[in-house]
Design a protein around this nucleic acid. Structure first.
Length: 474
DNA sequence: ATCGGCTCGCGCAA
DNA sequence: TGCGCGAAGCCGAT
């Protein structure tokens, strides 16, 4: 059964996901409700958009969806810029068809201090935006909330089960799993989406036309004109909802039935869902992915995939929401700190600089293959990601260097860089969510993993061949 | 090929 | 207070 947005189910979800970012009131005489789209780049199953739509209806105002892209975010580059811009083109076309007003502003130069959102906010009754703890979004939101003189609220759309239900930092997957799974079925019930009742007049739409980018233009040329790092080229993966849904459909039909075994084979190009980039930018909702998986193979069969998509993904969100130090060693549990202290002086077999790691110039061909996959595609296969991270842990002068280098490489090159799941995954390599294991040099009691042993477990040679160098095909 | 020990602490049962 | 248990490991004994 489908719920309308006025049902109590949607009401309670929305209430759980919504937080005020300042204590100001609605602006009297505001001309529209502004949804500032920061972290959830979709028009469906977007709780912030639902919130903004409902507020617009309550106030009898039209709704403006505004998305902006600045050159100032950390590692701003062609890969991330073009992934966002190509999705924006699709959003714009879809908005036109569904009666939504969507616009995109591209700030090309760092010295351009125009603040499009501020200007829009001075005419809005209130601002609704996405609640995301990473990628600088929470900080950007708080700065705006302090500057503008109207209400700013944030809405969380990342999780299937509202993150607000879990107030404290979870210890491990096993502590969150039973709680989150108890809510899953209910949380997956679909809610229908409708455009706001009040249409925006053409004159209002035209009067808001400041810095509005023509998304039908040459997007590559737009990216080239931006004051960003042009050394990170666009990834081959096609951005946008259409591509994401096609990939999801293929994955559900072809891979999901044998997911338990195929997921452990990094040489199998179609063995994993490859949804992480789409999920990171919110181009599709995790709930939709989960529903598709369950519809395809049913409940026990989909459980392994759901454990990753729901439990581990939302464990990472909980981590980044509840632990402000999610990018630092400080976030790790006491037993890790004790063992790091004890082994800080252990001799490292090799120490690589960030530049050597980035250039995939280590002594180990399998590690270099994973790094090349990252450089070429913006993705490292799930299984290889662990070996990639665990290896750097032992190849750095300090644990802090290792963590910084991994976060740098991932934030800069990965399409899901800056996602909570990325930080959760990297920190897992340092013992987060894990338990201690047998003590060894450098590793201490952190779980060790050996690249050399990988050849006995899966077709590491095949993976190595696949990412030998020149081949950049997916 | 399989098994246990390595080692910690949460969260539940009692 | 005790006890079971845990993303994917490693190593050595059998």
């Amino acid at each position: 059964m489908r719920h309308s947005l006025t049902s109590s189910f949607a009401d309670s979800q929305l209430a759980l996901r919504t937080t005020r970012a300042n204590l100001r009131g609605e602006r009297a005489g505001g001309e529209f409700v502004l949804y500032w789209m920061q972290g959830t780049h979709r028009l469906e199953e977007n709780w912030a958009l639902r919130c903004a739509t409902r507020e617009a209806d309550r106030l009898g105002l039209p709704l403006l969806i505004h998305q902006g892209l600045d050159p100032t975010y950390e590692h701003a580059n062609d890969r991330i810029h073009s992934f966002i811009l190509h999705n924006a083109r699709e959003l714009s076309r879809r908005a036109d068809k569904t009666g939504l007003r969507y616009q995109f502003a591209l700030r090309r130069r760092r010295d351009d201090d125009r603040r499009t959102v501020d200007r829009l906010a001075t005419r809005a009754a209130l601002v609704v935006t996405d609640a995301v703890p990473t990628a600088g979004i929470a900080e950007r939101t708080m700065r705006l909330a302090g500057r503008v003189d109207c209400r700013v609220v944030t809405v969380e759309s990342h999780a299937i089960v509202p993150a607000a239900l879990f107030e404290k930092e979870e210890w491990a997957a096993r502590t969150l799993r039973p709680k989150i799974m108890a809510h899953l079925e209910h949380a997956l019930e679909p809610v229908s989406d409708r455009p706001p009742k009040a249409e925006m007049t053409e004159s209002l739409w035209r009067s808001l036309e400041v810095d509005r980018l023509d998304l039908e233009g040459d997007l590559a040329a737009e990216v080239a004109r931006c004051d960003i790092d042009h050394s990170v080229p666009p990834a081959p993966m096609v951005s946008g909802r259409t591509a994401a849904m096609a990939r999801l459909k293929a994955f559900c039909a072809r891979t999901l039935p044998d997911y338990d075994t195929r997921r452990n084979e990094p040489a199998d190009a179609d063995g994993s869902s490859r949804m992480s980039a789409y999920l990171h930018f919110g181009q599709v909702s995790a709930a939709q992915v989960a529903r598709a998986a369950i519809a395809a193979v049913g409940r026990p069969a989909a459980d392994k995939f759901l454990d990753e998509l729901v439990t581990w993904r939302e464990l990472s969100l909980n981590f980044c929401l509840r632990n402000a130090r999610f990018r630092q060693l400080r976030a790790l549990p006491p037993w890790v700190h004790q063992t790091m202290e004890k082994h800080a002086g252990d001799r490292r077999e090799v120490v690589y600089s960030l530049a050597q790691l980035e250039a995939a110039q280590t002594h180990h061909p399998l590690w270099n293959a994973a790094q090349r996959e990252l450089l070429a595609t913006g993705i490292i296969h799930n299984v290889m990601r662990m070996y990639w991270g665990k290896s750097v842990l032992t190849w750095s002068a300090t644990y802090g260097d290792a963590l910084r280098h991994l976060i740098h490489l991932n934030d800069k090159w990965a399409l899901d860089g800056r996602d909570p799941s990325s930080y959760g995954g990297i920190q897992w390599c340092f013992g987060k969510f894990d338990r201690p294991w047998g003590e060894r040099p450098v590793w201490g009691t952190m779980r060790s993993m050996s690249l050399d042993r990988a050849y006995k477990k899966f077709d590491a040679a095949g993976y190595e061949r696949r990412w030998r160098g020149e081949e950049l095909t997916l």
